[in-house]
Simulated scan of single mutants.
Amino acid sequence: MKKDNVLTDMNNGLVTIDTFKNILADFFKYAVINWNSGNFYTVYASNSKNNLLSFLSNMTPALTPNQFVHTDLPVALLNLNKNEIKYRVIKEVIKEK
């Protein structure tokens, strides 16, 4: 019973990315999908392009194992070009012995 309720409620709450994008466009000018794993997404949206790009520039790219990635990230949803999105690069520090 509980399993059926959870799956039914989850299924009833699902929307397509296009539907979600259209809803976002009613409230925000810029949006990007930053993370994806299956049916789960992290989306950041703002009315300020500079603030959104600045926020993303302080983040690293998503660290999801490849087998769970179904979309080439990031995805520019609203009024952004994928080439504008720059993430912070973490350089590996090798300690000498």
Rank of each mutant, 00 (worst) to 15 (best):
85 I>V: 09
66 N>C: 03
53 L>K: 02
40 F>G: 04
33 I>S: 03
63 L>N: 05
66 N>Y: 03
14 L>I: 11
89 V>D: 06
68 F>W: 14
78 L>V: 10
53 L>I: 07
21 K>F: 10
97 K>E: 10
43 V>C: 02
44 Y>A: 02
47 N>V: 08
84 E>R: 00
67 Q>H: 09
33 I>Q: 08
13 G>T: 06
43 V>L: 06
6 V>L: 13
84 E>K: 05
5 N>W: 05
22 N>E: 14
92 E>L: 14
74 P>S: 05
23 I>F: 13
48 S>D: 14
71 T>L: 12
19 T>D: 08
79 N>W: 01
38 G>K: 00
93 V>P: 04
43 V>H: 01
73 L>E: 08
11 N>P: 01
67 Q>T: 03
55 F>R: 00
2 K>F: 09
1 M>W: 02
14 L>C: 05
69 V>S: 00
30 Y>H: 04
21 K>C: 12
83 N>F: 06
21 K>L: 05
58 N>C: 10
68 F>K: 00
50 N>K: 12
11 N>K: 10
6 V>G: 01
3 K>C: 06
95 K>G: 05
80 L>Q: 02
72 D>I: 08
73 L>K: 02
48 S>L: 07
95 K>V: 05
92 E>H: 07
75 V>Q: 04
87 Y>Q: 13
73 L>Y: 04
1 M>S: 10
55 F>K: 02
27 F>K: 13
28 F>G: 06
16 T>R: 04
2 K>H: 12
40 F>Y: 08
97 K>R: 08
18 D>Y: 15
74 P>W: 01
7 L>K: 15
14 L>H: 09
59 M>W: 03
19 T>R: 06
27 F>V: 07
17 I>G: 00
23 I>T: 11
73 L>S: 06
48 S>Q: 04
65 P>C: 02
3 K>H: 09
80 L>K: 00
71 T>Y: 11
34 N>C: 14
11 N>V: 11
49 K>E: 15
15 V>D: 07
19 T>W: 06
45 A>D: 15
28 F>Y: 15
20 F>V: 11
18 D>H: 12
44 Y>M: 06
71 T>N: 12
92 E>C: 04
11 N>I: 13
13 G>F: 08
66 N>R: 08
50 N>C: 06
88 R>T: 07
77 L>V: 09
3 K>N: 14
75 V>L: 12
59 M>K: 03
85 I>L: 01
72 D>G: 03
78 L>I: 12
14 L>E: 10
91 K>T: 09
68 F>Q: 04
79 N>F: 01
93 V>G: 03
78 L>E: 04
43 V>R: 00
42 T>L: 13
92 E>Q: 11
65 P>V: 01
3 K>Y: 08
60 T>W: 01
37 S>D: 09
35 W>S: 13
8 T>L: 13
65 P>W: 04
82 K>M: 09
39 N>R: 07
36 N>F: 01
97 K>L: 11
13 G>D: 14
75 V>K: 02
29 K>C: 09
42 T>P: 00
26 D>K: 15
17 I>R: 01
97 K>F: 13
25 A>S: 15
40 F>D: 10
97 K>V: 14
5 N>P: 01
45 A>M: 14
32 V>Y: 00
52 L>Y: 02
17 I>W: 05
81 N>A: 09
90 I>V: 12
16 T>M: 12
77 L>H: 00
34 N>T: 13
51 N>R: 11
97 K>P: 12
56 L>C: 02
9 D>E: 13
7 L>Y: 14
63 L>Q: 11
9 D>H: 14
23 I>C: 10
20 F>H: 07
